[in-house]
C-alpha cells in the first residue's frame, strides 16, 4: 500500500484530489444552472421570480432572454452561464436593483470576520480543553467537560443563538439585539472597534459553542491515544515536567487531526454562520440570504449560495494540500 514518496507521486496525489474538486465544482455549477430551468413555466420567471415579472416590459424581457441565451439550445445556455460567471457577473438583484456581486461584497466581510474569529477561538479553546481533559481522563474535570460539550453538541446552532439572544439580549439587556454597528456613533477608531466587538460577541459565542465540541472530542481522543505511546514514557523517564509532557510532547502530536478537520470545520462554520446571523440579524451573508428568500430574489440567492459553496470547496482543497505536506503518510485511495 505504501506508495513511494517521489515527487511524481506527490504530484499524482494532488491531481487526484484536484479532480475530485473539479467534479464537485461541475456538479455545483450544473445544479445552479439547471434548477431554475427545471421549474415549470417561463425560465425567466424562475430565474427572476414572480414579482419581477409583473413590472417587466417586453423590451426588457427580450433583452434578458438574449442575455441568458434562453432562445438557444441548453448547452449554449450553459456556455453563456459559465462565461458570465467567469466575468464575475452573478446576475442582477431585482430587490436591491444593483448587480448581485455588489450586494454580496458589501456583506461578505462581516461573515469573514465572524467565521474567521470563530475558527480561531473554537480551535484554540477546543484544543486547550481537549488536551487538559484527555490528560485527566476519567477524573472529575474531564467528566465535567465531556458532559458539557456532549450536551452542547445536541443543540442546533440557531437554537444556541436564540438562547444566548434571549438570555443576554432580551432578559439581561447586556448586548444589542441586532446589527453589527451602532449607526452614527463613529467617534475614533477605538470606539468603533469596541462597538463592533460588542455587536459581535453573541453571534461569535453562539458559533463557537456550536462548533467547539468536534474539536474538543477530536483532540481528547488523540490525546488519550498519544499518552499511551512509548515516547511519553521516555519523556517521563527523562524527568520532564508535567506541563512539558502535556503540551510539548502529547499536545503537539494531537494537533494533526485538528488540522485535517479544519476544512470540515470551516464548512460547518460557514453553514452555521448563515443561521446564526439570521438569529442576530447580523448584516452578513446569512441575513442577506434570509432576505433574499423572503423577497424571492433568486439571482441574489443563487449568488450567495454559490459563493458560500465555492469558499468551502477552496478551503477544503487548500487543507488537503497542506495536510499532505505536513503528514506525508497520507495517500488517497484513488
Amino acid at each position: 500500500m505504501r506508495r513511494a514518496l517521489t515527487f511524481c507521486g506527490v504530484l499524482q496525489m494532488k491531481k487526484g484530489f484536484l479532480f475530485n474538486y473539479l467534479i464537485a465544482l461541475v456538479i455545483i455549477l450544473t445544479l445552479n444552472f439547471i434548477l431554475p430551468r427545471l421549474m415549470p413555466g417561463d425560465p425567466l420567471q424562475a430565474i427572476y421570480g414572480c414579482e419581477a415579472m409583473i413590472v417587466m416590459t417586453p423590451e426588457l424581457k427580450a433583452e434578458l432572454t438574449r442575455r441568458f441565451s434562453l432562445d438557444m439550445s441548453l448547452d449554449r445556455q450553459f456556455q453563456s452561464y459559465i462565461a458570465s460567471l467567469l466575468r464575475g457577473d452573478f446576475g442582477h438583484s431585482y430587490f436591491y436593483n444593483v448587480p448581485v456581486s455588489k450586494v454580496i461584497l458589501g456583506c461578505f466581510p462581516w461573515t469573514i470576520l465572524l467565521v474567521g474569529l470563530a475558527l480561531f477561538i473554537s480551535t484554540g479553546l477546543g484544543v486547550l480543553a481537549g488536551v487538559e481533559s484527555g490528560y485527566r481522563r476519567g477524573l472529575p474535570p474531564d467528566r465535567f467537560l465531556l458532559g458539557l460539550f456532549m450536551g452542547l453538541s445536541g443543540l442546533p446552532d440557531f437554537f444556541i443563538g436564540i438562547l444566548l439572544l434571549l438570555v443576554f439580549g432580551v432578559s439581561l439587556g447586556l448586548v444589542p439585539l441586532a446589527g453589527a454597528v451602532t449607526p452614527y456613533s463613529g467617534q475614533g477608531t477605538a470606539a468603533i472597534v469596541l462597538d463592533v466587538l460588542h455587536h459581535l460577541a453573541l453571534p461569535l459565542a453562539a458559533l463557537v459553542l456550536s462548533r467547539i465540541t468536534a474539536i474538543y472530542l477530536l483532540t481528547r481522543n488523540t490525546m488519550i491515544t498519544t499518552l499511551g505511546e512509548n515516547f511519553i514514557i521516555t519523556a517521563r523517564a527523562k524527568g520532564c515536567a508535567n506541563h512539558v509532557i502535556r503540551y510539548r510532547h502529547a499536545g503537539r502530536n494531537s494537533l494533526l487531526p485538528v488540522v485535517t478537520a479544519a476544512g470540515l470545520q470551516l464548512s460547518h462554520l460557514i453553514t452555521g454562520a448563515l443561521f446564526v446571523e439570521i438569529v442576530f440579524s447580523y448584516p452578513g451573508l446569512g441575513t442577506l440570504l434570509y432576505n433574499s428568500l423572503l423577497t424571492r430574489d433568486y439571482p441574489l440567492l443563487q449568488g450567495i449560495l454559490l459563493l458560500a459553496t465555492l469558499t468551502v470547496l477552496t478551503v477544503n482543497f487548500l487543507v488537503d494540500i497542506i495536510y499532505s505536506k505536513i503528514d506525508p503518510r497520507i495517500c488517497y485511495a484513488h
Binding site: 484530489f17 479532480f19 475530485n20 474538486y21 467534479i23 464537485a24 456538479i27 455545483i28 445544479l31 445552479n32 434548477l35 431554475p36 427545471l38 421549474m39 424562475a46 464548512s267 460557514i270 453553514t271 448563515l274 440570504l289 428568500l293 433568486y298 440567492l301 443563487q302 449560495l305 458560500a308 459553496t309 468551502v312 470547496l313 477544503n316 482543497f317 485511495a333 484513488h334
Partner: peptide
Amino acid sequence: DRALMRLVDALIVIPPVIVAILAAAY
C-alpha cells in the same frame, strides 16, 4: 468501483446544507 467512489469523493466535499437550501428554495 472507480467511478462510484470518485463520485462519492466529489460529493463529500460539497457542503450539504448550503446546496439543500438552494434546491429547497426552488
